[in-house]
Amino acid sequence: MMAGNEQHAQLMTLLRVGGIFSPERLEATDILMAGGKIIALGQDLDVPTGWPIGVVEARHLIAVPAFIDQHVHVTGGGGEGGCGTRCPEISAQEIASMGIATVVGVLGTDGISRSPAELLAKVRGLIAEGISAYMYTGAYRVPPPTLTGDLQRDLAWIPEVIGLGEIAISDHRSSQPRQDEIERIVSDTRVGAMLAGKRGICHFHLGDGKRGLEPLRRLLSETEIPADQVIPTHVNRHPALLEEAADYALTFTASVDVTAFEDAGDGLSSFDAVSRLLERGVPPERITMSSDCNGSLPEFDAEGAYIGMKVARNTALIADWQRLVREGVLPLETALGLISGNVARVLGLQAHKGRLAAGLDADITLLDDDFQPRQTYVAGVCRYSAQ
C-alpha cells in the first residue's frame, strides 16, 4: 500500500530500527527525519515532550539507503512490433514496493509516439506521488529528440533532466550514428550540464552488434571527454560483451551498468554478470545495476524480423541483488553501492542520495532478515509498507 498521508500532520518522524547501514554499519539505531532530510542518527535519541513527532518502531528491520534505479521506462517502452506492442507505464506503487525511492526515466526505441514531453509529464507525476524522479532527454536515435530543441538548453533549464539517453549503439535498432555525431552529442551534454551544475551523464544502450563498445573506446581515447561522463548499459547482453565491458572499465577507470534481465536468454543474469566482473578485477564501486523496467524485451530472428516481446519488471533487480548478498559474493555494505551509492555518484546525486547521514535526503529502505524491502521512505515519508 501507499502510506504516508497521516505523516503530513507531523513535522518530524523518528525511526527506531534494529540496525543501520549507511552503507557501512553504524552504531546508531535511531533516525530522526524532518523536512525531507535526515537530521540526526543516534542511539536512543531523546526528543522533547510535545514536539510534533511520530515514532515508528521497526526494531526487527534494518535501515539502508533507499535504492536508485537509473534506467526505467516510466512511460513504457516497446513498439518494435507495432502499436499493439507498446509497454505500459510504471506506477509509484511498483517502484516503492521494491525499496526504490529514486528513478531516472528513459525513452528507448520509440521516440515517435513517446516523446521527451510525455516523459517529463510522467516524471513530474511520479514526483507528485512522492517518488524522487529524474529523466534523460533523448532516445535511441541521433540526433536525439529534446524538449527545447537543444540538448544544452534541456540540461540548463529543466531541473528534472540530468543527462542524455538512452542512445543506442551496436544495435540494428539504432540510427547507426557516426563517431563524430557521438562525440558532438556527448560534448553538448557535458557543456549543458556544466552550465546547470549537473553531472550530465550520457547513458548508452549497448546492443549485440559486432562493434560492441568500440564507439565509446574511441570517444574516450580520441577526445578529452572524461570516462565518468559516459555510462554503457546492458553490458551483460552476451558473454563476449561483458568481457569487453570488464576490459573497458579497467582500461579507462570507467563505470559500467548491468541490466537485471528477467530472462537473460543468450546473455547473463545480473547476478552472474556482477560476479564475473568482480572476478575480472573490476572494483565493485565501478559497477551499477538497473532494471530496464517496463521496457520491452523483444525477440528477433536472424534477419532482424520481430517475432515476440516480453515486458521487463523491476523484480529481477532486487532478486539478483539479494542473491549477491545471500551467497556472499559481496558483503551487504559493498553490495548496497550497486543499487544505491554507486548509482548516486554516477548520476551526480551523491550530495543528496546514496548514504544515510545527517543533511542528506531521508530516502530509506527498511529490510527484513532476508533482505526483502518492507518499508520505503522517500523524503521522510513512508511510500510503501508491506502488510
Rank of each mutant, 00 (worst) to 15 (best):
G4Y: 01
L14E: 01
R16M: 02
G19H: 01
S22M: 12
P23T: 13
E27I: 03
I31W: 03
L32K: 12
A34V: 08
K37Y: 06
G54K: 07
V55L: 01
P65F: 07
H71V: 02
H73S: 02
V74P: 07
T75C: 15
G77H: 15
G77M: 11
G78E: 00
I90M: 13
S91M: 03
E94M: 05
M98E: 14
T102L: 00
L119N: 12
A121Y: 07
K122V: 02
L126I: 05
I158E: 08
E183N: 14
E183K: 00
E183R: 14
R184H: 05
K210R: 15
T223I: 07
I225Y: 09
T233F: 00
H238Y: 15
H238V: 05
A245D: 07
T251A: 03
V258P: 08
E262N: 06
D266H: 11
V274A: 00
R280G: 12
P284E: 12
M289C: 04
M289G: 04
S291V: 12
E303P: 05
M309P: 00
M309Y: 10
A316V: 02
L317N: 09
I318R: 12
S340T: 06
R345M: 02
L347N: 05
G354L: 05
A358S: 15
D363A: 01
T376I: 00
R383Y: 09
Y384N: 11
